[in-house]
Amino acid sequence: MIRVELPALLRTLAQVDGEVTIDVESEATQRSVIDALEACYPMLRGTIRDHISQQRRPFLRFFACETDLSHEPPNAPLPDAVASGAEPLLIIGALAGG
């Protein structure tokens, strides 16, 4: 079981409160987790990564275990603590405002 924390607007879109939990059949990577997330919540397709390029949207970041994973390869294994469900994968919107 993987825990994922979504930005507020995506929680509203997906009609969930707090963290979501998903099962990932294969090794836990950014790609496999987002694949599973989009399968469970189809309305999220295209909101975290671009449909065509499959690239992370530029204003989003991936954090876990106090580490910025945004620039890790999509197929790189996520930390063991994320894979085991001990820690969530945080999907964070870049700060903006003023």
Binding site: P7, L9, L13, G46, T47, I48, D50, R57, G93, A94
Partner: peptide, 8 residues
């Protein structure tokens, strides 16, 4: 639309 999350 959102600059963060793209087009729906």
């Amino acid at each position: 639309y959102s600059a963060w999350f793209g087009q729906l």
